[in-house]
């Protein structure tokens, strides 16, 4: 039934052209359209306006999307090739500075300290069955070398470590631990040639059992070259 209220009537018209009316009501609506010219005109105007507004709104969406797409630039073009190149150079510079000036972190160093300190604390009380005098001497020298390194006395550490490195009966793990500490001591003492030959010796010794971080390997390699260049 056609609503009496004006607002309800407009909503009724809108429901019709949006296909929201049930069939029975559509028939009544169409009868009203045929019967009442003024109602027909109102319905026609609302429909025309609705279609035009929808069309304009979609057209606006299209224009906006085209503008978005045209202003969208790939990262390289947005930032600019020059800025990207400068950023790249700065990053490479920072990376080289890090490799050059950051100390080599012997990751297992802390484990070694704990281990050697434990044996050192046992001192003379340790039973003969626990450590041989030779092992005890090794740990003592190794711990002292680590202490010298930590105290910024690489030349003292070198003396200890070179003596340990000459020992024949070291297991591969301890041999490489000594060699890495010795290499580090050479670097701290500005002896790049000795550091280089120690690194070659480590690389030629086969399986690397003493764990050293990849970045620290790069640091060592780079610092040897850097020291050779600057000395």
């Amino acid at each position: 039934m056609r609503p009496d209220d004006q607002l309800k009537q407009w909503e009724w018209i809108e429901d019709y052209y949006q296909n929201k009316l049930p069939i029975s009501e559509r028939l009544i609506f169409e009868q009203e359209l045929a019967r009442d010219a003024e109602f027909r005109q109102t319905a026609e105007r609302l429909k025309t306006a609705d279609q035009a507004l929808r069309f304009m709104s979609l057209e606006n969406t299209v224009r906006k999307a085209v503008r978005q797409e045209l202003t969208h630039r790939p990262l390289v073009r947005r930032v600019g090739l020059g800025r990207m190149a400068v950023s790249g150079v700065v990053l490479i510079g920072m990376w080289l500075a890090y490799l050059t000036f950051d100390g080599v972190d012997l990751q297992t160093y802390r484990d070694d300290v704990t281990l050697t300190q434990r044996y050192r604390e046992l001192g003379e009380d340790v039973e003969e069955t626990a450590l041989t005098p030779r092992q005890r001497s090794f740990y003592r020298n190794f711990f002292d070398a680590q202490a010298f390194l930590a105290n910024g006395q690489p030349e003292m550490a070198i003396a200890n470590l070179e003596k340990l490195a000459r020992a024949d009966s070291l297991r591969p793990y301890f041999r490489q631990a000594v060699e890495w500490h010795l290499l580090n001591a050479y670097l701290l003492n500005n002896q790049p040639n000795n550091a280089d030959s120690t690194l070659r010796m480590i690389n030629e010794s086969g399986e690397l059992v003493y764990r050293i971080d990849r970045t620290d390997r790069w640091k060592v390699w780079w610092q040897i070259r850097w020291q050779k260049l600057t000395h």
């Binding site: 407009w10 609302l46 025309t48 306006a49």
Partner: peptide
């Protein structure tokens, strides 16, 4: 607000007609 919207649409429809 609804009355305003429909009146505006009727006016627009009239102008387009």
């Amino acid at each position: 607000a609804k009355v305003r919207k429909y009146r505006c649409m009727l006016r627009l429809g009239e102008l387009l007609e």
